[in-house]
């Protein structure tokens, strides 16, 4: 009987819709939890996103298997016996079986997919989502993350190999790439037998005070003020420093640190 087969197909579709809804809600929660994790571990968010998609697929599959007609029967006790019987007699065509299919089709009009959703469950999920969102904001705004050294076995090795002497310190000072300029090229800064040639351009420091003229006296006349006075920006002194100067600074600082 095509009507009853169609009815069961529709029922399967309803089961899929409900499973999908639950799986999406669960996946969003999973994503939030994973995002909290990646934020703490200072990882990229794609890890959380990728894992959530895998979770979504797995959850739908699981729920489709788990959500059976039995659950529909539990939520709709008025159709429990007839639905169970119809499922067992799907291919039969006896008079009474056909009458039962007709009765089931009539009774199914009173059954909606909404009855399969547990409002308490949805409420709990919504609350969990809100709490997770709040925690993400908290972690991100305060830049809270677990230091990488926590996962470095060397940290623990040093601590165990020198008991009482070494401090179990997970916090190490890390410099950004730009900070390397402070020391210059690490190869050049390495002390050894290498000869360091310093070429310092003396042009800036070379000043002949004899050539300095006395300032000319000038009288300001009323009404001869310049119409517009503008300051012309110049390159900063730091930018003007030649590369060799930076190397020299780095060298000096390193020497200072060693001494």
């Amino acid at each position: 009987m095509s009507e009853i087969k169609r009815l069961f197909r529709e029922l399967h579709y309803e089961v899929f819709k409900i499973s999908f809804l639950h799986a999406v809600a669960d996946s969003v929660i999973f994503f939030m939890v994973a995002l909290n994790g990646t934020t703490l571990l200072n990882l990229k968010y794609y890890f959380a996103l990728g894992a959530s998609f895998v979770f979504l697929f797995a959850d739908i599959t699981y729920r489709m298997k788990k959500t059976t007609f039995r659950q529909i029967e539990e939520k709709n006790p008025q159709i429990r016996d007839i639905l169970r019987t119809a499922r067992d007699c799907e291919d039969e065509t006896d008079f009474m079986v056909l009458a039962m299919f007709e009765e089931l089709i009539q009774k199914m009009k009173s059954v909606s997919a909404g009855s399969l959703i547990d409002p308490r469950n949805l409420l709990v999920k919504t609350v969990v989502l809100c709490m997770l969102s709040f925690s993400i904001i908290l972690l991100a705004s305060n830049n809270i993350h677990v230091p990488k050294s926590v996962f470095d076995p060397g940290t623990y090795y040093k601590w165990f190999s020198n008991p009482g002497k070494e401090r179990l310190d997970f916090y190490t000072v890390e410099f950004n790439e730009s900070d390397d300029l402070l020391y210059g090229d690490p190869n050049l800064a390495d002390l050894g037998n290498k000869t360091l040639e310093l070429h310092i351009n003396p042009s800036i420091n070379e000043m002949n005070f004899d050539t300095v003229k006395e300032p000319e006296e000038k009288e300001f006349e009323r009404g001869t003020f310049p119409g517009e006075i503008a300051a012309v920006s110049d390159a900063s002194s730091e930018e003007k420093l030649p590369k060799e100067s930076k190397i020299a600074i780095a060298y000096n600082l390193k020497l200072k640190e060693v001494s």
């Binding site: 169970r84 067992d88 039969e92 006896d94 008079f95 009474m96 079986v97 039962m100």
Partner: peptide, 12 residues
């Protein structure tokens, strides 16, 4: 005849 045709679920 109809009485014998009344369907019963496997569960029952």
């Amino acid at each position: 005849k109809y009485a014998r045709q009344v369907p019963i679920s496997e569960d029952l």
